[in-house]
Amino acid sequence: HPVNIPRREKDFQGMLEYKKEDELKLVKNLILELKPRGVAVNLIPGLPAYILFMCLRHADYVNDDQKVRTLLTSSINSIKKILKKRGDDFETVSFWLANTCRFLHCLKQYSGDEAFMKHNTPKQNEHTLSNFDLAEYRQVISDLAIQIYQQLIKCMENILQPMIVSGMLEHETIQGVSGVKPTGLRKRTSSIADEGTYTLDSILRQLSAFHSTMCQHGTDPELIKQVVKQQFYIIGAVTLNNLLLRKDMCSWSKGMQIRYNVSQLEEWLRDKGLMTCGAKETLEPLIQAAQLLQVKKKTDEDAEAICSMCQALTTAQIVKVLNLYTPVNEFEERVSVAFIRTIQTRLRDRCESPQLLMDTKMIYPVTFPFSPSSLALETIQIPSSLNLGFLTRV
C-alpha cells in the first residue's frame, strides 16, 4: 500500500503552486464568490491576501513573468468587480480594504528591499521574491487601496448621515435643561427615543459596529485610526452645519446638550484606545460653537474672550451663531447688533475663507504605513471551505 508521509511544516517553502488554467477558478473562489459573513468570518485575518501572495511567490519562483502579471491583473480586477457589485455593503468593502493592504504589505515585506526586512525572521528572509521586482505593481495596489478606502468612507457616511442631526442635536438626553418653549410651556423630555428617532446611543453603537468589523478583518490599527478620524469629522461637520442653519438649535440648552454629546464621543474614543488618532480635534469647531452658545455675549471683555476662544470657527460662523442665538426665557436678551459689530471689527484681520458651512465631502488623505506580519507563510493551511483544493502547498 502506498504510504502517505505527511510533510513537516518546516519543509514547506510558503508557496502555493497552481496551473495557469486554474487562475480563473482561483480568483472566482477566493475573491468573487467569497462572502465576508460566510466562510470568511472564520478565516485568519488577511488569509485571502496571504494565499494570493503565496501563489504569486510560486509564479515568481518558476520565473514566469506572464503568470505573475496575469495573477496580479486578475486579482486586482476581481477585487474591483466585487466592490462595484457590493460596494454599499460595509463588511465587503472593509474586508477587501484589509486584504488589499495586507497584500501590499506582503509585497513590501518579501520584496528583498532591506528597508522592509528589518523585522523579518531569517525564515521570512528566505521567502523573498526570487526573480521579479514588483515595485510598479505595488504602486497599483496602493492606488487600489486608496480607492477602496474612499469607498469605505462613503459607505460609512451613508449609514451615519441619517443619524447625526437627530442624535447630536434633536434628541435631548439631559433632564431639566431643555428649557421652556417660546410659548411658555415646558417641553416634554424623555430618555426614551420616539420610534424611528436616532439618539446619540444609535451613533455610538454604529461606531462600535464599524470598529468591531474592521478589527475582525485585521485592518491595520493605523488605518482604523484614520477611518475613525474621518468618521468624527463628518459627525462634527454635519452637526455644525445644521446648527448654523437653525435658530432652534442656537440656545444655551442646546449648547449644553452638544457638549454632553461630545463628551460621550470622547468617552467612546477613550474606551477604544483612540484618543491620539486626531478624531477629537476634528470636533473642535462644534465644541467652540457649543461654548459660544453658553458664554456671556454682552461686554467688550466678552467679545475679546469669544474671539480668542473661537479659533476653529470662521468669522462668518461666529456671526451666524450670534445672530441666531435664541434666549431661553424672556429675561435674557438677544445678542445686540453692536456686540456683533464689535466681534466683526476684532476679527477683520483674519485671513480665512468666507465660507459659512463646513465641507462635508472632504476626505483626509489616507496613508498606509508599512506593517509587516509575523505570520510564517510555511505554516499557513487553507481551509477546505474555500474550495481551493487545486492549489498545492510547496
Partner: peptide, 30 residues
C-alpha cells in the same frame, strides 16, 4: 537566487489601464 543577481523590474499598467484592458476583454468574450 544568487544574491548578486538583480531582480527584473516588471513594468505595470496603471489601475485605469488595467480596468480598460479588463473591459475590452469582457467585450471580446462571447
Amino acid at each position: 537566487r544568487p544574491p548578486s543577481r538583480p531582480r527584473i523590474l516588471l513594468k505595470a499598467p496603471t489601475l485605469a489601464e488595467m480596468e480598460e484592458m479588463n473591459i475590452s476583454e469582457e467585450e471580446e468574450s462571447p
